[in-house]
């Protein structure tokens, strides 16, 4: 389990450092996805499987896809096609691909070990998280839902202004 943790955290730090130093937005996002997946694996080794799943679904899934959409929208223009072919060069995706393959090998080795690699004492089950969330933290859940509603209304309002002006 220690090896899995150290490899995953090394990949996380490396890909984050590469993400914030890229000049191109899409290259940075590729490294950022790898970084988030590595952090999800760190969560798993810490016995937080539910948080790891949430990290993959919400961070690496929803949020990064939203940012990819934005970068694609901002790059609309005459030079877009030329950039598109430029992004397909192996030099661009080979770095994130290698880091992703290392993560994949790590997951496979954890699964191949049979016991799912997770300590039985430290694991916090999703059931416990749900009981805590809808017990003592019920008010916070309501506040979070209001925050999401406010974000929805705010984003819609800003997009509406954009349409009205343009």
């Amino acid at each position: 389990m220690n090896d899995a943790f150290y490899v995953a955290s090394g990949i996380a730090v490396l890909s984050t450092a590469l993400a914030i130093t890229r000049a191109n937005g899409v290259h940075a996002l590729l490294y950022l996805v790898i970084s988030l997946l590595a952090v999800a694996l760190v969560f798993y080794t810490l016995g937080a499987a539910f948080a790891a799943a949430l990290e993959v679904i919400v961070y690496a899934g929803a949020i990064i896809v939203l940012m990819v959409f934005l970068v694609m929208m901002l790059n609309l223009g005459g030079a877009a096609a030329a950039r598109e072919t430029q992004w397909m060069k192996p030099r661009v995706w080979i770095g994130p691909a290698i880091l992703g393959i290392v993560l994949e090998a790590e997951i496979v080795s954890i699964l191949a070990r049979g016991d799912a690699g997770v300590p039985s004492l430290a694991v916090i089950l999703p059931r416990d998280v749900g009981i805590a969330m809808f017990g003592p933290y019920l008010l916070c859940v309501e506040l979070a839902s209001m925050l999401l509603l406010a974000a929805l209304a705010g984003a819609y309002r800003l997009a509406y202004l954009e349409r009205a002006e343009g």
Binding site: Y59, A151, G154
Partner: peptide, 18 residues
Amino acid sequence: ILVLAASEVAVGLALILR
């Protein structure tokens, strides 16, 4: 924190577009 990050990125991206 996930909820916070999601709402922050939604409003932030709309602001960036503006």
